[in-house]
Amino acid sequence: MATLPPNVEKGVFFVHVTREIDAPVDKAWDVLTDLSKYHEWNPFVRSMTIVNASKEEDADQTLAEGKYLLMKCHIPPTMDDSARNQAPLELVKVVDGVNHRLSWVNVDYPSFALRAERWQTLTAAGDGKSKYETWEVFNGVLAYFVKFFMEKSLRRSFDGFADGLKAQSERS
């Protein structure tokens, strides 16, 4: 599995968001990787479930490389669970608790049609703070349609994710 993010310059388009979080990296990492609590704070990804390739829930819900994620996403973001969900299937590429890096890639489509690779990192920002950074690079023929029809909403969704992570990590 690749351990470096894709070159954003080579994508059809990308979404990139950063936030400074007034909490240590380890605390923010714990929030980011605790999939069972996404519904409490995340208006973009309302839930994430570890599944097999057939989208059947796995008994072991431990986030790990090579596992699949089924996400319930709200685009645009909302905490209202009556809203229509999108449910992409993702393959986890990187779960690096030492360097605080997390990555997955969409596997719903052949890569020539649509490849969406997401990376998230947390780094120390001094004085007990951390910096969250996330980006997703879109490629393939369908990426042009996603860009045209969904780019603005995706950017709002990524902002909602980052704002929620910040707020949840900063809670005492």
Rank of each mutant, 00 (worst) to 15 (best):
A162Q: 00
E65V: 14
N7W: 04
V105Q: 11
S103W: 09
N106H: 09
N7Q: 08
F44A: 01
G128E: 08
L4V: 13
D80F: 08
K93I: 12
D108A: 03
A125D: 11
K10F: 08
M1H: 12
R171V: 11
N42R: 08
F44P: 03
D159V: 06
R84D: 11
T62S: 15
V146Y: 01
Y38S: 01
H100A: 05
F161K: 05
K67E: 06
L114E: 09
A64R: 14
V141H: 11
S157H: 03
Y38W: 04
G160V: 00
A23E: 03
A143R: 04
F161Q: 05
D58C: 14
F158M: 07
D58E: 14
K55D: 12
E40K: 09
D30P: 02
L114R: 05
V31R: 02
W135Q: 08
N7D: 15
N85A: 15
A64Q: 14
T33M: 10
H39M: 02
W135Y: 15
V98G: 08
S153Q: 14
E170R: 05
K37F: 07
L102G: 00
K37Y: 11
R115A: 13
A83N: 07
A167V: 13
K131T: 15
F145S: 12
K67I: 02
A143V: 00
E56V: 15
P88W: 01
N42P: 04
A83V: 00
Y38V: 06
A167H: 10
M150K: 10
M79L: 11
E133N: 08
N85L: 14
A113R: 14
E9H: 10
F14H: 15
A59P: 12
Q168T: 04
K131H: 09
K93S: 06
M79W: 04
P5F: 00
L69R: 07
R115Y: 01
E9M: 12
R19W: 03
A124V: 03
F138Q: 05
H39I: 03
S54D: 14
P43I: 03
I50C: 05
H100L: 01
P76N: 04
H16S: 11
K67V: 04
E9R: 11
A28K: 06
P76G: 08
P5H: 01
T49C: 06
